[in-house]
Amino acid sequence: MLQTAAPVALVPIERSPGYWATVWSRFRRDPVAVGAGLVVLALILMAVFAPLIAPQDPFKGMALRRLRPPGTDGYPLGTDELGRDMLSRLIYGARLSLFMGVTPVLLALGAGATIGIVAGYAGGWVNTIMMRIIDVFFAFPSVLLAIALSGALGAGIANGLISLTVVFIPPIARIAESVTTSVRTRDYVEAARASGAGPLRIIRTQVLGNVMGPIFVYAMSLVAVSMILASGLSFLGLGVKPPEPEWGLMLNTLRTAMYIQPLLCALPGLMIFLTSIAFNMLTDGLRSAMDLKA
């Protein structure tokens, strides 16, 4: 056993700002990224407090006031094909659309990062076998795979989540594997091995801190893709089912009114566009803030 150290009082020491503190201060100085972050925050708040913000019941329709244009008295963004208030439906739609965008990515981040880090750290034939299996999933275009999976599982929110999660595991695992492989051979990992630490401890203390940043940023860039895919599934009738307000589904049901009220049926698409652009710019800002020499 090691002897205990010479008694040295733990005097206060000067601490440098850590990596994440530095990233945050760089991020704060990037107006585009901060703007995108505020938009994302606003969308999240809108989803959470939808019942308080929405002026009308998003499910209550009236045949007499169908397809009113934006600006109609009492319906600032008009009404949909069943006479429901568009503004309220768009606000409520943020709930399901964001949920369908973020949840599959989070689930895939957990599974994909685990697979990738294990494969990358193990190396050798373990890596080869794991990554070849992942490659099989890569062979399918992601849209096709999502449609095929949710088509096979049946429509519904849960099945949509499952199929989107499966679609996002391979790309995240790939990124995790390549980052981990590059970290694994660094001298500080060798030094940790030379100090007698086992693989789990090395992954936890030496590898994770150096790989989670890039993996997380990549996963965040998938949120926009996930939202668009989820909207696509809903559009095809595979994801969310009517009468739930969801932007993709709204786009689908309003499609028939394209020639009557073109502005109206562009609104859900505009929301999808705004959200995915905001997520993408936030991701870009984070990526450049994290691109430190250290």
Binding site: M1, T4, I13, G209
Partner: peptide, 26 residues
């Protein structure tokens, strides 16, 4: 390359003793 860029100097040095059962504080 032989120091983990995400760990402070004292954490890098303290890592090996904790592997061999020394308490974090020690």
């Amino acid at each position: 390359a032989s120091l983990n860029p995400r760990l402070t100097v004292e954490d890098s040095i303290a890592f090996a003793p904790t592997v061999h059962g020394v308490s974090g504080d020690q």
